[in-house]
């Protein structure tokens, strides 16, 4: 069943992405001020949405683990964090490419960019912390606690463009209260492109979770073999 879901979601993501790429490059016109480069927003913003979604899932899973102590929640937390970290890297990279064209520089130390980088570093720390702990139960417990702290940085990153006057563009989406700043067709495309990314993320999380579960099983079998 799980394998079928993984295949179905992958095919959906691939088809949707091809269709979206066609519309993005051939259907939608260039932006008035930015020209062709604005199209990167259809990948930049959805990958940030995806990474935030992953971190929320990971935070909730870690919270549930601390509450109930089920191993599956720990597996979900680590899988979601790994995928989220990858999407943060995509978000940072696409943002940098855009900045190089529009601002003329790859990077600037404004609040949004800085917080995004901090978030990435913190979650990389989470993944490294897991590698440093051998005992599976202690690993799950301690990394879940760390994850609770890590989530605050996601909140700050999300709010940074409202709290500070940043060089990063202020909110343009209607869901963030900016009405009419973006063409409705373009905004719709942005959400439409979020779907395949989210599907891809879910696929990756499912594969990673299975792997994590199998690894745990192998570890316990090995311990059993040693005990005998």
């Amino acid at each position: 069943m799980r394998t079928k879901v993984i295949y179905a979601l992958s095919i959906f993501a691939a088809l949707m992405l091809v269709r979206n790429l066609y519309v993005i490059f051939l259907g939608l016109p260039d932006e008035k001020d930015q020209g062709a480069i604005y199209r990167i927003i259809f990948f930049h913003v959805p990958s940030w949405f995806t990474s935030f979604a992953m971190f929320i899932v990971s935070g909730v899973a870690s919270g549930l683990y601390l509450w109930k102590g089920r191993q599956r929640n720990d597996e979900l937390a680590v899988a979601a964090t790994e995928v989220g970290t990858v999407f943060v890297a995509i978000g940072l990279a696409t943002g940098m490419i855009w900045a190089r064209i529009i601002w003329g520089i790859w990077w600037t130390w404004d609040a949004r960019l800085t917080w995004a980088l901090i978030t990435w570093l913190i979650y990389a720390g989470y993944l490294m912390l897991r590698r440093g702990i051998d005992d599976p139960t202690a690993r799950a417990r301690l990394s879940a606690v760390f994850n609770m702290f890590a989530f605050t940085s996601v909140m700050i990153t999300y709010k940074a463009i409202e709290w500070w006057r940043t060089q990063h563009p202020a909110p343009v989406l209607t869901i963030r209260g900016a009405d009419g700043l973006m063409d409705p067709l373009m905004e719709r495309m942005l959400y439409l492109n979020w779907l395949p990314m989210l599907a891809l993320a879910v696929v990756l999380v499912m594969i990673r979770m299975r792997q994590e579960g199998e690894q745990r099983e192998i570890e316990s079998l090995r311990r059993m073999a040693h005990a005998l």
Partner: peptide, 21 residues
């Protein structure tokens, strides 16, 4: 959190500084 870790001295600054920011 890191007191019982093998690489405590390495791990603490790596986790701590980003979170202190």
């Amino acid at each position: 959190l890191t007191v019982n870790l093998r690489m405590r001295e390495l791990m603490l600054p790596m986790l701590l500084y980003p979170m202190m920011i």
